[in-house]
Design a protein around this nucleic acid. Structure first.
Lengths: 364, 364
DNA sequence: GCACGCTGCTGAATCGATAAAGCAGACCGA
DNA sequence: TCGGTCTGCTTTATCGATTCAGCAGCGTGC
């Protein structure tokens, strides 16, 4: 971005000249100060409307020491995270809260790992944004730790039990995973279960595995625990099931840490001539869109990423307003949504058009 | 956003004091000016690193009269557009180009219709962003017209034949729709075709219908043209097919203006005991993700929204750099991706795991 | 031996908005 | 009639970064 003949913008000075006052008075008039007469205020507002005045945000930000913007940061530039449907829901949630506060949303990937300061810090220290929401940070991300330690206004999406000083909003993954696993155990009587986890350097992967193990333990099946690590991708779900099948060890149910992996797995199972749910009952996690559209539909734990993001953003605004002092951890409940893949009676007879809103939802 | 004890940031003044020069010299040193000695530059760079100096973006923007940011604007706050997978692809494309130019991306919905100036204008006139990318604007959006007329740096996503002064990047929807329709006509010998269009106040809806009609006309079937208007939602696709079936008029193929509607329709067809593709061959449009995961997979025209967005953003930067003078219209080709829903032999025998990359792609 | 040019900085101005202090004139009560 | 309070502005300073005109001091050419 270099030259360009830019149309000079309309400033307060222009309004002031037009009305015959100083720009300070114009500013006060637009701010509806009690120290300005109604008559002048009217004149200023009229002039502003006629000239199409829009306050310059850099000028305002500089003076107020506040950018009027927050940033949504995605640590790994990895296409996987950024391109995921999850992100769309998060963005929707953040936007709706930000709009309500009349604040801009900056979306940023942590591209400049090279520089000493992480994208988080740069963006806050430069005053580009007043605070940040960080999504999908891995457990070992040092940047997140230093950021939290620096005391800047940040809210993390997800759970960070090892960062007690951090403010975060996550889903109750352990309880959720335990619930969906127990669904397979008790409702469908499946006892030989496989778990394909998420990457174990993300808290989500750890927690969902823990919930799975807890459910097994609760049924005296701790010794039967069988976990394969995936990476949340469709391919890794497929690969995990290929490996499981080839190992020869039998299983009649599988709990996946997300729907993408469950979908990848279902394709493999079908290709091997195994029926879902008859031969293997499958459950996923997230319900960000995919689970509803596959055949069979995937039974899953619905995580409202949008709600999480909205709460996180509201919390960020509370922090910025000085209404939230110490660190705060919020965990949202998660909802079991049953579909065909676990063997539950489909909400509508198989093959009949099932409306999206017709899924059976059970709140834990 | 009100009070808050903010840690005072590190400014040029701090660096200058530390090194024992003025802040002007410090600025020039960091800019690698030839008028500053190597020794001083080194000292300044060291001090900057030690203090963790990050230039204040408001100060810089104010002085340079350039924000260092661009905005991605979504006109309708309608959840449908914002929540659509399409948007994710667009954001990915815009981000990648913006990152390459070291510029921030602001995501904005056109929330304040109430105000006189549209979100587009406000955001540019306030200097918050140096230019904007506008997605999914309806044909009758007056804001877009005034914006284009105002000569501000804007690139529209989509085709705007009625706005010759606009710079835009779109897909060749007419050719694409014609191609996919002809696929049904010639490859699969379907002649009684239904088209479920998108909303006809969007150019996309108009163009895809036109391509459909052109294909029919090319085969002497102009009189057989049967078009129902949908709104790109799954529900409207389902409703359109319900109406078509109930009308009693037979059809053996259906062309949908996007994959969501095709999916909604397939559910209805299945519920009515009709097989896709045997009884009705179905084709969709977009291939943003859904089409690959349904059963049967949906044959569709792949539109690379990400590429479109990247090109649009690159074009915006060219405009900002003064390298692009007049309006420029770019139309990208679109790719036919055959899957099961049209009756094409599946790339892999039905029921076998089909890897995502194994779809058959045909470039028009 | 002196003007001239170069090097390497300083000083001052600017970008636009806004907060705080200041200052006329009107008005009021005593 | 005079101190005092309002009203309705104006003046001035500030937020950080950057640019441009100056201006010392030094070396060089003739």
């Amino acid at each position: 971005m270099a030259p360009r003949t830019r149309t000079r913008g309309v400033t307060l000075e222009d309004i002031a000249q037009r009305v015959g006052i100083t720009r300070a008075a114009a500013s006060m008039a637009l701010a509806d100060s009690t120290r300005i007469s109604e008559k002048t205020k009217r004149a200023v507002r009229e002039a502003a409307a006629e000239l199409g005045y829009v306050p310059n945000s850099a000028g305002r930000a500089l003076r107020r020491q506040r950018a009027g913007a927050i940033a949504l940061i995605v640590p790994n530039t990895s296409h996987h995270v950024f391109g995921h449907t999850y992100f769309m829901h998060v963005l929707t949630g953040v936007s709706s809260s930000a709009n309500a506060h009349d604040v801009q949303v900056i979306v940023s990937t942590n591209a400049d790992e090279a520089g000493r300061a992480s994208a988080f810090e740069r963006i806050i220290r430069s005053g580009t944004a007043d605070g940040v929401i960080v999504t999908a940070a891995p457990v070992d991300d040092a940047n997140v730790e230093t950021l939290v330690a620096s005391g800047l206004p940040v809210v993390l999406l997800g759970n960070f039990p090892y960062l007690p000083e951090a403010t975060s909003v996550g889903a109750d993954d352990v309880a959720a995973s335990r619930l969906v696993t127990e669904h397979l155990l008790t409702v469908h009587g499946r006892t030989r279960l496989l778990h394909v986890s998420g990457p174990l350097d993300h808290q989500t992967g750890i927690d969902r595995r823990e919930g799975f193990l807890a459910a097994l333990a609760g049924h005296g099946l701790a010794d039967e625990a069988w976990v394969v690590e995936g990476d949340m991708s469709e391919e890794s779900g497929a690969a995990a099931v290929v490996a499981a099948l080839d190992s020869g060890r039998p299983f009649d149910g599988a709990v996946f840490a997300n729907d993408d992996m469950a979908f990848g797995a279902m394709q493999v199972l079908r290709a091997r001539g195994l029926d879902v749910p008859t031969d293997v009952a499958v459950v996923g996690f997230d319900d960000f869109g995919l689970a509803r559209t596959t055949t069979p539909g995937i039974t899953t734990m619905r995580v409202s990423a949008e709600q999480m993001a909205r709460i996180a953003t509201d919390t960020l605004f509370a922090i910025l307003a000085g209404q939230q002092a110490g660190p705060l951890h919020q965990e949202l409940p998660v909802q079991l949504v049953t579909r065909d893949s676990c063997g539950c009676p489909a909400p509508f007879p198989r093959g009949q058009a099932a409306a999206p809103w017709a899924d059976t939802a059970v709140t834990p």
